[in-house]
Protein backbone atom coordinates (compact mmCIF):
# COMPACT_ATOMS: atom_id res chain seq x y z
CA UNK A 1 0.00 0.00 0.00
CA UNK A 2 2.86 2.33 0.88
CA UNK A 3 4.61 1.52 -2.39
CA UNK A 4 1.39 2.01 -4.35
CA UNK A 5 0.79 5.38 -2.70
CA UNK A 6 4.34 6.39 -3.46
CA UNK A 7 3.96 5.43 -7.11
CA UNK A 8 0.69 7.34 -7.48
CA UNK A 9 2.23 10.39 -5.81
CA UNK A 10 5.17 10.31 -8.20
CA UNK A 11 2.84 9.82 -11.16
CA UNK A 12 0.56 12.73 -10.28
CA UNK A 13 3.43 15.03 -9.46
CA UNK A 14 5.18 14.11 -12.72
CA UNK A 15 2.03 14.95 -14.67
CA UNK A 16 1.73 18.24 -12.79
CA UNK A 17 5.39 18.97 -13.38
CA UNK A 18 5.12 18.24 -17.10
CA UNK A 19 2.03 20.42 -17.30
CA UNK A 20 3.83 23.30 -15.63
CA UNK A 21 7.22 23.20 -17.25
CA UNK A 22 6.36 22.32 -20.85
CA UNK A 23 4.66 24.64 -23.22
CA UNK A 24 0.96 24.64 -24.10
CA UNK A 25 -0.41 21.56 -25.77
CA UNK A 26 -3.90 20.55 -26.81
CA UNK A 27 -5.67 19.30 -23.71
CA UNK A 28 -8.79 17.21 -23.98
CA UNK A 29 -11.33 17.71 -21.25
CA UNK A 30 -12.74 14.20 -21.32
CA UNK A 31 -9.33 12.59 -21.12
CA UNK A 32 -8.48 14.45 -17.94
CA UNK A 33 -11.76 14.39 -16.07
CA UNK A 34 -13.29 11.09 -17.22
CA UNK A 35 -10.29 8.84 -17.89
CA UNK A 36 -7.89 10.11 -15.27
CA UNK A 37 -10.28 11.65 -12.76
CA UNK A 38 -12.95 8.97 -12.70
CA UNK A 39 -11.49 5.90 -14.35
CA UNK A 40 -8.05 5.82 -12.85
CA UNK A 41 -9.09 6.65 -9.30
CA UNK A 42 -12.08 4.30 -9.27
CA UNK A 43 -10.10 1.30 -10.46
CA UNK A 44 -7.31 1.81 -7.92
CA UNK A 45 -9.86 2.22 -5.15
CA UNK A 46 -11.86 -0.84 -6.15
CA UNK A 47 -8.82 -3.12 -6.03
CA UNK A 48 -7.69 -1.66 -2.72
CA UNK A 49 -11.12 -1.97 -1.16
CA UNK A 50 -11.49 -5.60 -2.21
CA UNK A 51 -8.20 -6.47 -0.52
CA UNK A 52 -9.10 -4.53 2.61
CA UNK A 53 -12.48 -6.20 2.94
CA UNK A 54 -10.94 -9.66 2.60
CA UNK A 55 -8.29 -8.86 5.17
CA UNK A 56 -10.96 -7.35 7.40
CA UNK A 57 -13.14 -10.43 7.14
CA UNK A 58 -10.21 -12.55 8.28
CA UNK A 59 -9.36 -10.53 11.37
CA UNK A 60 -12.87 -9.76 12.53
CA UNK A 61 -13.89 -11.34 15.84
CA UNK A 62 -16.75 -13.80 15.72
CA UNK A 63 -18.32 -16.23 18.07
CA UNK A 64 -16.57 -19.52 17.27
CA UNK A 65 -15.24 -20.74 20.60
CA UNK A 66 -11.91 -18.95 20.31
CA UNK A 67 -9.93 -18.45 23.50
CA UNK A 68 -11.23 -15.39 25.36
CA UNK A 69 -9.33 -13.03 27.61
CA UNK A 70 -10.70 -9.91 29.27
CA UNK A 71 -9.20 -6.48 29.70
CA UNK A 72 -10.64 -3.83 31.94
CA UNK A 73 -9.22 -0.33 31.62
CA UNK A 74 -9.26 2.29 34.33
CA UNK A 75 -7.34 5.56 34.69
CA UNK A 76 -4.46 4.62 34.30
CA UNK A 77 -3.99 0.88 34.49
CA UNK A 78 -5.08 -2.31 32.81
CA UNK A 79 -6.55 -5.37 34.53
CA UNK A 80 -6.58 -8.63 32.63
CA UNK A 81 -8.40 -11.89 33.18
CA UNK A 82 -7.03 -14.93 31.40
CA UNK A 83 -7.66 -18.65 31.73
CA UNK A 84 -5.28 -20.39 34.13
CA UNK A 85 -4.94 -24.02 35.11
CA UNK A 86 -7.50 -23.62 37.93
CA UNK A 87 -9.95 -21.24 36.31
CA UNK A 88 -9.67 -17.52 35.43
CA UNK A 89 -6.69 -15.59 36.75
CA UNK A 90 -6.62 -11.85 37.23
CA UNK A 91 -3.44 -9.85 36.64
CA UNK A 92 -2.58 -6.19 36.50
CA UNK A 93 -0.44 -4.69 33.79
CA UNK A 94 0.57 -8.02 32.22
CA UNK A 95 -1.45 -10.18 29.87
CA UNK A 96 -0.48 -13.80 29.22
CA UNK A 97 -1.56 -15.40 25.96
CA UNK A 98 -0.48 -18.57 24.18
CA UNK A 99 1.46 -18.32 20.93
CA UNK A 100 0.23 -19.55 17.60
CA UNK A 101 -3.48 -19.42 18.22
CA UNK A 102 -5.94 -16.58 17.80
CA UNK A 103 -7.56 -15.10 20.88
CA UNK A 104 -10.39 -12.66 21.45
CA UNK A 105 -9.90 -9.85 23.90
CA UNK A 106 -13.04 -8.48 25.54
CA UNK A 107 -12.60 -4.78 26.36
CA UNK A 108 -14.44 -2.80 29.00
CA UNK A 109 -13.74 0.42 30.86
CA UNK A 110 -14.58 1.59 34.35
CA UNK A 111 -14.30 5.31 33.72
CA UNK A 112 -13.36 7.07 30.46
CA UNK A 113 -12.61 5.80 26.97
CA UNK A 114 -9.29 3.97 26.58
CA UNK A 115 -7.90 2.02 23.70
CA UNK A 116 -6.05 -1.28 23.75
CA UNK A 117 -3.10 -1.45 21.41
CA UNK A 118 -0.13 -3.75 21.02
CA UNK A 119 1.55 -2.40 17.89
CA UNK A 120 3.41 -5.62 17.16
CA UNK A 121 0.30 -7.78 17.36
CA UNK A 122 -2.06 -5.73 15.23
CA UNK A 123 -4.83 -3.19 15.31
CA UNK A 124 -6.35 -1.37 18.24
CA UNK A 125 -9.79 -1.35 19.79
CA UNK A 126 -11.45 1.09 22.18
CA UNK A 127 -12.57 0.26 25.70
CA UNK A 128 -15.74 2.25 26.26
CA UNK A 129 -17.74 2.50 29.47
CA UNK A 130 -21.05 0.70 29.12
CA UNK A 131 -19.90 -1.29 26.11
CA UNK A 132 -18.14 -4.63 25.55
CA UNK A 133 -15.90 -4.63 22.51
CA UNK A 134 -14.35 -7.83 21.23
CA UNK A 135 -11.14 -7.78 19.26
CA UNK A 136 -9.30 -10.70 17.68
CA UNK A 137 -5.52 -10.91 17.78
CA UNK A 138 -2.86 -13.54 17.34
CA UNK A 139 0.78 -13.76 18.36
CA UNK A 140 2.94 -16.01 16.22
CA UNK A 141 5.87 -16.74 18.50
CA UNK A 142 6.63 -16.61 22.22
CA UNK A 143 8.06 -13.33 23.45
CA UNK A 144 7.16 -10.09 25.20
CA UNK A 145 5.40 -7.19 23.52
CA UNK A 146 4.72 -3.73 24.77
CA UNK A 147 1.15 -2.44 24.80
CA UNK A 148 -0.25 1.00 25.42
CA UNK A 149 -3.40 3.06 25.69
CA UNK A 150 -4.04 4.70 22.33
CA UNK A 151 -6.97 6.96 23.20
CA UNK A 152 -6.18 10.09 25.14
CA UNK A 153 -7.52 9.46 28.64
CA UNK A 154 -6.21 12.22 30.88
CA UNK A 155 -3.07 13.15 32.68
CA UNK A 156 -1.66 9.65 33.06
CA UNK A 157 -2.28 8.68 29.44
CA UNK A 158 1.34 8.49 28.32
CA UNK A 159 2.24 6.14 31.16
CA UNK A 160 -0.72 3.81 30.71
CA UNK A 161 1.38 0.93 29.40
CA UNK A 162 1.17 -2.82 29.77
CA UNK A 163 2.98 -5.94 28.68
CA UNK A 164 1.82 -8.94 26.72
CA UNK A 165 3.72 -12.10 27.50
CA UNK A 166 3.30 -14.66 24.74
CA UNK A 167 4.13 -18.14 25.95
CA UNK A 168 4.58 -21.50 24.33
CA UNK A 169 1.28 -23.39 24.87
CA UNK A 170 3.29 -26.51 25.71
CA UNK A 171 5.06 -24.68 28.54
CA UNK A 172 2.72 -22.25 30.32
CA UNK A 173 4.41 -19.91 32.83
CA UNK A 174 3.92 -20.33 36.57
CA UNK A 175 2.18 -16.97 36.87
CA UNK A 176 -0.77 -18.29 38.84
CA UNK A 177 0.79 -18.28 42.29
CA UNK A 178 2.50 -14.89 42.10
CA UNK A 179 -0.18 -12.57 40.81
CA UNK A 180 -3.56 -14.21 41.08
CA UNK A 181 -5.98 -12.73 43.55
CA UNK A 182 -7.66 -14.82 46.26
Amino acid sequence: MLIGSGLITVLVLTLAGLAIWRGPRPSDERRWTIWWGLGFSMSVLAVLLAFALRAGERIIARDDGTLQVEAEAQQWRWRFVQPGPDGPVQTEGVLYVPAGQPFDIVLTSRDVIHSFWVPQLGGKMDAIPGHRNVHRLMADAPGTHEGLCAEFCGIGHAAMRFEVVVYDPADPPPFVSAESLP
Binding site: R31, W32, T33, G37
Partner: peptide
Protein backbone atom coordinates in the same frame (compact mmCIF):
# COMPACT_ATOMS: atom_id res chain seq x y z
CA UNK B 1 -12.46 5.74 -0.30
CA UNK B 2 -15.09 6.97 -2.74
CA UNK B 3 -14.66 10.54 -1.55
CA UNK B 4 -11.23 10.47 -3.17
CA UNK B 5 -12.91 10.30 -6.59
CA UNK B 6 -14.34 13.84 -6.84
CA UNK B 7 -11.09 15.13 -5.43
CA UNK B 8 -9.12 13.33 -8.08
CA UNK B 9 -11.43 14.68 -10.79
CA UNK B 10 -10.54 18.19 -9.66
CA UNK B 11 -6.84 17.48 -9.42
CA UNK B 12 -6.74 16.12 -12.94
CA UNK B 13 -8.84 19.02 -14.21
CA UNK B 14 -6.24 21.40 -12.76
CA UNK B 15 -3.38 19.45 -14.30
CA UNK B 16 -5.27 19.42 -17.61
CA UNK B 17 -5.70 23.19 -17.38
CA UNK B 18 -2.00 23.69 -16.86
CA UNK B 19 -1.34 21.20 -19.65
CA UNK B 20 -3.34 23.36 -22.05
CA UNK B 21 -1.71 26.63 -21.11
CA UNK B 22 1.70 28.15 -20.65
CA UNK B 23 2.26 28.35 -16.92
CA UNK B 24 3.70 31.57 -15.57
CA UNK B 25 5.52 30.69 -12.35
Amino acid sequence: ALVAVPTSVQIFAWIGTMWAGRVDL
